[in-house]
Amino acid sequence: MKRLQRRSLATFWSVLFFFYVPILVLVVNSFNASKFGGAWKGFTFKWYEKLFQDRAIWQAMENTFAVAVGATLASVVLGTLAALAISRWKGRLQSAHYGLLYTHLVLPDILMGISLLLFFISVGMELSLFTVFLAHTTFCVSYVAMAVLGRLENFDGSLLEAASDLGATPWQTFWKVQFPLLLPGIVAGGLLAFTLSIDDFVITFFVNGAGSETLPVKIYGMIKRSRDLPKINALSTLMMCVTVLAVVASRMMQGRGMRPQKDASAARRPSSPAERREGQGGRVRGAAHHA
């Protein structure tokens, strides 16, 4: 038992090392005067300076945020409605509804990208920031719906009965009881949608048009053309700092905010592409579970 434990623990630490080394190398190299980062050629901030002078990157960042905000708002509304409908009614319609949202989670990004591209071409839509927004909203709806559904599953239906028993009309019951209690799930879904939208590359790559490059697409272009590589290091380091700060901030908010049910704290953090995949796996796991 001890031996098994020691060996598995050693594997685990090696894996963590494997996880962190590339990122650490990247961060260190953002301060490396050497262009290729193989060897340390002195400390410098010049890549950061260059980064801030690059207007195209700022433009891409603006695009990214515009799309992320729009897609988040749209998908929060659509996803919340979807979750409410799926949990409220049972039947063929809702089975299909759920199946659509679920299948969408499982499909690889590239399929969503290509099919949306073909769709936009077929209906004669010019590729632009707007098509990017449409695409992002589409994949975000599923995630928001699942986050809210998770919250709804733990929802005590007798609270709604209690509200109507105390004289609340269905409308009042929704706004005074159900909505406030679902809000953490909705916020979590929204944060998830926001981060996914900011991070998405593959789908955006297919449906963006001239002048509608988002940050990941811009970075991809820089990598592909092997230009300004140290600038990418600097940009990545900055983005990581922002993400970590956002995580810490949301953790602190979480600590202060009301949290009626502990189990609901599940989806309260802004999530990464990693978690998005986890989400997919969760669905797949469900499918496997029923198999």
């Binding site: 005590d156 007798s158 009965e161 209690l181």
Partner: peptide, 20 residues
């Protein structure tokens, strides 16, 4: 009559207090 129009109130088994 729907529940909200009845002069009848209920004490639920699991209390159903609004947690928020």
């Amino acid at each position: 009559l729907p529940p909200d129009k009845r002069q009848v109130n209920t004490v639920f088994q699991n209390y159903a207090l609004f947690p928020h």
